[in-house]
Design a protein around this nucleic acid. Structure first.
Lengths: 110, 110
DNA sequence: TTAACATTCAACCAAAAGGTTGAATATATT
DNA sequence: AATATATTCAACCTTTTGGTTGAATGTTAA
């Protein structure tokens, strides 16, 4: 089972629009740091930092080939995030179901 | 359709562990600000601020009754977040499928 | 009407986030 | 060997974030 800080790191990484864009880019296939940075208006260094954050969250993996660093997208952490969200979502959904049932039952008695 | 900043606000709100805890608490039912704040070690004011963030992200709704403010959990923004995550996840999953298929096809030719 | 309670507002502070530029490191090309 | 390329490291700056305390506001209770 993954350490509990994993979810925090994942959500934090996803909370930045630049990082989400990077992920989208990488979900279309491997790319080097420079390639990933190219479309952005910010400096290469800034993008490099964002990639670091994504790496710490295990959302991005790095494969060095000579001077090139090839980045790829890893889906696993998203699973945990999705799970948390689904869980939180369904909890309340179930409560609503329970409430509706209760109201239905009461209706039957009128 | 929701404005595009909604997802950013949602993920940002979820990225803080205190706020996730507050949501969990509220997903079990309505509660007043003081009640929500009680289990935390930080000040009431700090929690009040977190609630503000959750409200701006539409994850929490407020219903005032006299001096009490009753807070409740709203699931809708989580749907958008879940959707984004699912979409990003499946994109890559599909690419993997395509790759596997390609490799299978090549195997047949050997 | 005074006192207690529930909550926010305002001012402040430290730490973190997101960006910049410039130098360092390592690899590739000529 | 010299130069160009790919990338990070380090120092710095500004804004945002998450927290504090103290005062203000509005509501209920004695």
């Amino acid at each position: 089972m993954p350490p509990p800080k994993t979810l925090a790191r994942t959500l934090l990484a996803l909370a930045d629009p630049t990082r989400r864009a990077i992920l989208q880019r990488l979900s279309a296939g491997e790319a080097r740091v420079t390639d990933v940075a190219q479309p952005f208006k910010m400096s290469l260094n800034a993008v490099s930092k964002h990639i670091l954050v994504l790496e710490r969250a295990r959302l991005v993996q790095r494969r060095k080939v000579g001077r090139d660093h090839f980045l790829s997208y890893r889906a696993e952490p998203l699973d945990a995030a999705a799970q948390w969200i689904e869980q939180t979502r369904h909890f309340w959904a179930n409560r609503l179901d329970a409430l509706e049932k209760l109201l239905r039952d009461e209706d039957m008695n009128k």
